[in-house]
Deep mutational scan, measured.
Amino acid sequence: VDYIVEYDYDAQHDDELTIRKGDIIKNVKKLEEEGWLEGELNGKRGMFPDNFVKEIK
């Protein structure tokens, strides 16, 4: 499942992704941690907030 970024987010920890509006995040999975998703961007896998992105259908 792929998501498109709607709002910029700067990573706060090493396991998070810095994302920018218009980025496409690939292979996204829901995490047990409420409010977070995990996906791949530019060869890096990491977490990001689910309210900054929208699923591409």
Rank of each mutant, 00 (worst) to 15 (best):
V1T: 08
V1Y: 06
V1A: 14
V1F: 05
D2N: 15
D2A: 15
D2I: 09
Y3E: 01
Y3S: 04
Y3P: 00
I4E: 11
I4M: 09
I4Q: 07
V5S: 03
V5N: 01
V5H: 01
V5I: 02
E6P: 02
E6N: 04
E6W: 07
Y7E: 15
Y7F: 04
Y7V: 13
Y7R: 15
D8K: 06
D8G: 05
D8V: 03
D8Y: 07
D8L: 03
D8H: 04
Y9T: 01
Y9H: 05
Y9A: 03
Y9L: 04
Y9P: 01
Y9D: 00
Y9S: 03
Y9W: 10
D10S: 12
D10E: 09
D10P: 11
A11P: 11
A11Q: 13
A11D: 01
A11E: 04
A11L: 03
Q12K: 13
Q12E: 09
Q12L: 14
Q12M: 12
Q12S: 12
H13S: 14
H13P: 01
D14W: 09
D14T: 14
D14P: 13
D14A: 05
D14V: 12
D14K: 13
D15M: 12
E16R: 04
L17A: 01
L17H: 06
L17Q: 01
T18K: 03
T18Q: 08
T18E: 05
T18W: 05
I19V: 04
I19A: 05
I19N: 01
R20H: 08
R20N: 08
R20D: 01
R20E: 05
R20Y: 08
K21M: 10
K21Q: 11
K21R: 10
K21F: 06
K21E: 08
G22K: 05
D23L: 07
D23M: 07
D23I: 04
D23G: 04
D23R: 02
D23F: 11
I24G: 02
I24N: 03
I24H: 05
K26Y: 14
K26I: 12
N27E: 11
N27W: 13
N27S: 13
N27R: 13
N27M: 05
V28Y: 02
V28T: 07
K29S: 13
K29V: 11
K29F: 15
K29P: 01
K29Y: 14
K30N: 10
K30V: 11
L31H: 09
L31E: 11
L31D: 05
E32G: 10
E32T: 13
E32N: 11
E32W: 10
E32D: 11
E32H: 09
E33Y: 12
E33L: 13
E33M: 11
E33Q: 13
E33T: 12
E33F: 13
E34K: 13
E34L: 12
E34S: 08
E34W: 04
E34F: 06
E34D: 12
G35M: 05
G35W: 03
G35Q: 05
G35R: 06
W36I: 07
W36T: 05
L37A: 07
L37F: 05
L37H: 05
E38K: 08
E38F: 08
E38N: 12
G39R: 00
G39M: 00
G39V: 00
G39T: 01
E40F: 11
E40D: 14
L41E: 01
L41P: 00
N42R: 11
N42Q: 09
N42P: 02
N42V: 06
N42T: 07
N42L: 10
G43F: 08
G43M: 07
K44A: 09
K44R: 14
K44M: 13
R45L: 09
R45F: 11
R45V: 14
R45A: 07
G46K: 03
G46A: 06
M47S: 12
M47R: 11
M47G: 08
F48S: 01
F48R: 00
P49Y: 12
P49F: 09
D50V: 07
D50N: 12
D50M: 09
D50F: 10
D50T: 09
N51F: 03
N51R: 13
N51P: 03
N51L: 04
F52E: 04
F52D: 03
F52H: 12
F52K: 06
F52S: 06
V53P: 02
V53L: 03
K54S: 15
K54L: 10
K54V: 07
K54I: 05
E55G: 02
E55F: 02
E55N: 02
E55Q: 04
I56R: 02
I56S: 03
I56E: 03
I56M: 06
I56Y: 11
K57G: 15
K57R: 06
K57S: 15
